[in-house]
Design a protein around this nucleic acid. Structure first.
Length: 197
DNA sequence: AACATTTGCAACCGCGTGCTG
DNA sequence: ACAGCACGCGGTTGCAAATGT
């Protein structure tokens, strides 16, 4: 994918690279951020000498270069959690990703669009194979509601009517993962951060 | 083997929000 | 109070790889 040239609105003279990042660009960006930190992306792009817009640098850092990024191999547990969180939150990928340490909103979104949405469609066409809709424990529903409010800074989602029934379906959980989900629901800080380093 | 189609994912774009002077 | 800037988010696009014919 050969980079093509474009212009950034804020700097019409500067010829910017677009398209796939090269290993050299990655190295420059990572080294710059290691020294100066990940903020003021426009300045990062300019001072690091990258012919990229700030947005592009931010995206590259967040989705690829950031430390502790997990890439690919989304586990069954993670997939299940994505499904549940999506059912609760809808397409709020950053919120969902925030509960999956090492995963980015872009990855979750891509995974959803390429894998899970098809899976869901398939399930809906064959209802007998879909996840059974059961009511959930009150504490789980409350915790999920709290999480939603916390994650959205208290925003109200009028289009989202929280469907407690069927959100956290424990019928498919083994005792181990049930414990994990309970832990997840009880804590503001995600237990994975401590457990899975 | 050659071509067409589909899939998966990295990256871009536009918009909304929050911060700062 | 306002304007400009920076950031973050979700939707969309474009392309390489994989798969099918």
């Amino acid at each position: 994918m050969a980079p093509v040239n474009s212009e950034e609105s804020s700097n019409s003279k500067m010829v910017m690279n677009k398209g796939a990042w090269t290993a050299e660009e990655d190295k420059i960006l990572a080294e710059y951020i290691e020294v100066h930190g990940a903020k003021r992306w426009k300045a990062v792009a300019m001072k690091a000498g990258l012919k990229r817009c700030g947005k592009s640098c931010r995206l590259r850092w967040l989705n690829y270069l950031r430390p502790n990024i997990k890439r690919g191999n989304i586990s069954d547990e993670e997939e299940d959690l994505i499904l549940r969180l999506h059912k609760l939150l809808g397409n709020r990928w950053s919120l969902i990703a925030g509960r999956l340490p090492g995963r980015t909103d872009n990855e979750i979104k891509n995974y959803w669009n390429s894998h899970l949405s098809k899976k869901i469609n398939k399930m809906e066409r064959t209802p007998e194979s879909s996840i059974p809709q059961e009511s959930i424990p009150d504490n789980a529903a409350a915790a999920a509601q709290d999480m939603m409010e916390e994650g959205s800074q208290g925003a109200v989602f009028p289009e989202l009517s929280f469907d407690a029934d069927g959100f956290f379906d424990f019928s498919m959980e083994g005792s181990c993962s049930l414990e994990w989900v309970n832990k997840f629901l009880e804590l503001d800080e995600d237990p994975w951060l401590a457990d899975k380093s």
